[in-house]
Design a protein around this nucleic acid. Structure first.
Lengths: 198, 198, 198, 198
DNA sequence: TATGAATGAGTCTTCATTCAT
DNA sequence: TATGAATGAAGACTCATTCAT
């Protein structure tokens, strides 16, 4: 009888370690050997759960995005429209060390996805997905009359998303652009812009 | 007396090749061996002009940013205020293959800079530098009455910069977000927002 | 379960080959590649058993010293005092090709140990260790009345050790100083000196 | 008209720098590039005065031995027999940092000379040379009646030489074996042994 | 399922040496 | 004589991956 193992849980566990390592030292540090060492499993086990390095990195990104997704879901629970949107934005901006690490992993992944065609498509879908979450909140806000009537939800969502990325990216390098105060002002501004339908 | 060589020119030449390789295949492809091969020089020569790999990658980024800088300088020649700003934005967005490649190099560099403290600081300075260019254009535009009086230039510049990054980054992965039409609309929108002082 | 390997035995096996190569051609020849080639293992295996070159060289020296130690232990088995001492000296002097090779390895190691602080301390301990073996034999000989009463064992051991090193070192370069006859005379002389307590 | 250069002086100058580098960091550090850098000359100049690396290392050893030779000559000036011998011994033992460095260079050279046949012969000659200096002092001492009549000078010289090497070599690694006090005692002892004709 | 031994390609880097100027 | 540009071999080392157990 084979040992019973929670396969998906193992994957998540290993993915989390991979993500941490990437955030700490980039791809150079996230070697299979190191992941094995940190996880306490053997090298063979890692390869058993992930079909090669690429899948492992992909897993790390999924774990990171999953983290954001559940955080956003929890924060927006019971909310809708502008209120939900604000929470959603707060959930993605690197307001603390943990989220900053998420962004580091994203950046590492993006830099390789920008080059490999296959990953590029996947990434585009991920973006579209995230934008759609914004868009649906915006649509509700429009219905609720919180956003200027006649506004197109999708373009607004895209712009919001772009600002979000820009804000997060620059924050990674400059302390002054990653203070909670700065982020609060910018979030206020983003919401304000939405209200104006811009 | 030794052979006379234009040292800086050599560096630029090699940097350009490194940048191209990074844009084509990421860091994995941009090995010293490959750079040597593409450039027609021997491996030793590369190390003769660059003190190790890190400096070489740094050189590639400098070359890329230099390319943008001179392109922007040329495009904004004789212009000021909003007109200059529009050209400056056009110069940074990945409207064509060449600029798209620039962005790929940036992304690769950012992903490692996010992890290494020393590079992080350098990157923050580069950002600040770029923002300041926007800010000075904005200041002129405010003086000229093109932007809502009483607007603070620096925050506007920062937001513009963030949007610029977000727009460019997402464009790398999705064709629909990298069409000239889309970019034109977004540029118009960015300018419009500035005019409103938002 | 993985293939079962006698780890220490492998280390010894590889160390022996490294030592042989060093004796044959110095550090220049004792490259990891060559060691791998001679051993029949792949380069990776070498690194699997040794954490870098330094450890490998260290292993080679250990193997050499181990060889002397067991040779001396065997030769002095059942003996004590002056009789043991004579055997011990015979075991260290380069009376044959094999021991000459041991000395070549020692010399190579000493030349690097003279420069690196950490190795220097290790080497001092090794010396002290070897001297102590002499000293304990000498103490017994004094008790047995074979060595002039009132002699201090440690200084005698140190002098004996120094002579041993000098004899062996010079022998490496000159055939006339490495003949068995010459060595026999010198050993006799060393013992004679000890008996006189000098 | 070619520039007038004191060829031998240049060689000595460069040899001295090479020797210093070897003493500081071993052969690994004594690269032609580094020697060029330290000397202020270009790489080409080094190769101009020395026909390859081997000759350069040889030059460093010569410079070191030359230093000892002139130091000994100066110290023994006007002396003969046992008195001269004492000074000669004092001149070779690593009583200070400078002489310790000399020994480091010797050790580095010996370790390579032990392997290469050609160098081995050269080294044997150097040894023989040094021994002969001792021997001639000893002969005078015998004539003067300071050393037991009927003693054979050459064997005594050889033993003295061996002790000298052993003392110096061990001193490189252990502070307790390189104190001035220890050396003085050992020198006294060596002289004492000679007087007894041992 | 799990282990870790083994592989060998590939990385950056350093170096002595040659040579055009 | 002198410079330093250029070469190319060789070094240590790391890594993803395969596979026998």
């Amino acid at each position: 009888m084979p040992k019973i193992v929670d396969h998906p849980a193992r994957r998540r566990e290993i993915s989390a370690i991979a993500a941490t390592l990437i955030a700490e030292g980039g791809m150079e540090v996230a070697t299979i050997r190191e992941i094995a060492h940190r996880s306490g499993y053997s090298k063979g086990v890692i390869e058993h759960y992930f079909n090669g390095k690429a899948e492992l990195i992909s897993g790390a990104l999924d774990w990171v995005n999953q983290g954001y997704a559940s955080r956003a879901a929890q924060a927006t629970f019971g909310l809708s429209g502008l209120a939900a949107l604000r929470k959603r934005i707060e959930a993605i901006l690197p307001l603390n060390r943990a989220v900053t690490n998420e962004w580091k992993v994203r950046l590492v992944f993006w830099s390789t996805a920008a080059i490999e065609t296959e990953l590029r498509t996947q990434q585009a879908e991920r973006f579209e997905n995230a934008v759609e979450f914004y868009a649906s909140d915006i649509r509700v806000a429009i219905e609720q009359g919180d956003i200027a009537a006649g506004s197109a939800a999708k373009p607004l969502a895209h712009r919001l998303f772009a600002s979000t990325i820009g804000l997060s990216t620059t924050a990674l390098y400059s302390p002054s652009l990653s203070s909670k105060l700065y982020f609060r002002d910018e979030i206020d501004h983003l919401i304000h812009r939405l209200i104006l339908g811009l």
